[in-house]
Design a protein around this nucleic acid. Structure first.
Lengths: 303, 303
DNA sequence: TGCATTAATCTGAAAATTCGATAGGATTTT
DNA sequence: AAAATCCTATCGAATTTTCAGATTAATGCA
């Protein structure tokens, strides 16, 4: 089997044109170098050097092998260098999954922010429901997921990012009179509009409501918050809206936002990654960036 | 120290995405592969793979190292292949030195002949005096030398090629009457024209002549046979001409060629190479080719 | 909870590599 | 000629590396 050691010794021999001096170059004894050269020659089935009194001469094959050897050694060197060059924080590609009830509000702020702070970043985004994202994370298709906690962390690490309070959204001209702030038992399940199955917000909305009367809930699944809120604006019912969505959605739908009484229901948004991933530092940096962005968005809505 | 073994195992691991299967691929046990991968990671200071329950995932660095590793392994493979590809007889470059009193007559025939019989040959020629050629041979600048034997073979191997008889060349209108065939004691050293110092033919000419009267020899060195024979044709004296030069030189100079009586003086032309050179077969083939060409040339002159 | 899978760890043995000493070959010096 | 010198190959012992097999630890699955 050809080895890099043989090639390194051979390169030294070709440079020094002398076994003893070559051995010094690579810091071994002359017999050690001699043996490796012989091993290399016997493995290749070719005489690489002519041993004569007036030093060492390379054969034709030796010259050819030397050229290839030097090229290989240079590439090995480059491999070592590039591997050791510790890539800084958030450099290169990072593939992030985001849940649909968060992505439209967070991503337009987050991506420019990341690009500004980490110019070498290459972001790939995927929007899907939590279960799909977690599966992709496990398969190595994604590096990180932004989703609602808690979740079934099996081999996954998570870090809380921010708390996203729920509000009730209803049509601006809604006749129903509600106390403000709202208490959970005032929510009429029959009027509650929900996202389709699979969205965590659907489950969270149901959790907020009193368990009574769930049988009668409107089995009408919207596919996005925007669709849902258009339905709300058209008087078809009401829905839970996370705080982060308010500034965007209130601007384009004629809706009224009603807060809940304390303790206000909320979803906890977190960052998720494979526990086996070595990108701890990237995850820290990403988490900070997301928290900052979310705070900005929510503060903007409050103002 | 990074090794090819590590790189081969890593390549297998990246392909199989499974330690056990990768170990099978490279025909070692799983702990052996595991250890090499860990060694590689620790040497590079980088995590190359994520070990998770659902198989093995490459990190970003791992992907990069894999790409470089594959490139290197391919090149190593090519090195082995090309080294093992036993180059046939007289393929590739061969650097040949020829003495000046032979080159102008032999080379124009020899080179086309070699090119015809060995299409893959790349010939480099150098014309110089024997001492220079032998020095270049020792330095590895030349692979073979065609010169007059015997010579001081120090670390050199030689093979006789052909015998090149001497004739006396004189002006066509020379008044001097000589017996034909000539005997050596008839040669008048005062009339003998010689090549400059260093040419073996000069020494051979002197050896042919009776040692008497060497004090009076014309110390007039020509630099080539052609020059010398032009001087002869102009009546400035006479000189020894080797048989191989006759057909060419007689055609362009008004000279008379007189043979010697037996035992005819001659020079022995031989092929010389470093004894340490592994190109024995090439030398055999070259010797045969030269002998054939020389015979052709001399036979053409006789006809 | 036990069972299966997977990679890491441990252990002892085999193989490769090393060094130092020395031999063999040739050249150069004395 | 003999001695000294230079250079590579060879030998033997010590060290390091690599290995297989058994086992362990961690995780996932039923």
């Amino acid at each position: 089997m050809l080895t890099l050691r043989q090639m390194r010794y051979f390169e030294a021999l070709a440079s020094a044109r002398h076994f003893g001096k070559a051995a010094e170059l690579v810091h071994v004894s002359q017999p050690a170098l001699s043996a490796q050269i012989m091993e290399m020659e016997s493995h290749l089935g070719v005489k690489l050097v002519e041993r004569s009194r007036s030093g060492v001469l390379l054969t034709r094959k030796g010259e050819e092998v030397l050229a290839r050897t030097r090229a290989i050694l240079v590439e090995v060197d480059q491999l070592e260098q590039s591997a050791r060059a510790s890539s800084g924080t958030l450099e290169g590609r990072i593939r992030i999954g985001v849940i649909p009830t968060l992505a439209p509000y967070l991503v337009p702020r987050l991506v420019p922010h990341l690009r500004r702070v980490y110019p070498a970043i290459e972001i790939e985004l995927k929007e899907s429901v939590t279960s799909r994202l977690v599966a992709d994370l496990g398969d190595g298709v994604l590096d990180a997921v932004i989703a609602a906690l808690p979740l079934d962390t099996d081999g996954l690490a998570t870090k809380p990012l921010f708390s996203d309070r729920f509000y009730m959204a209803m049509a601006d001209n809604e006749r129903t009179i509600l106390m403000s702030p709202l208490t959970e038992d005032q929510v009429d399940v029959e009027q509650l509009l929900l996202l389709e199955e699979g969205h965590c917000l659907r489950d969270q909305a149901l959790a907020v409501c009193s368990t009574a009367g769930k049988r009668r809930l409107v089995s009408f699944g919207a596919t996005s918050m925007t669709t849902l809120l258009q339905m709300v604006a058209n008087g078809m019912g009401m829905t839970l809206i996370p705080e982060i969505a308010i500034s965007t959605e209130a601007a384009r739908n004629a809706i009224r936002i009603v807060p809940f009484a304390a303790p206000e229901p909320a979803r906890e948004i977190g960052l998720v990654w494979r526990r086996s991933s070595p990108r701890e530092r990237d995850m820290d940096a990403l988490a900070t960036a997301i928290s900052d962005c979310a705070d900005d968005i929510i503060r903007a809505a409050a103002a």
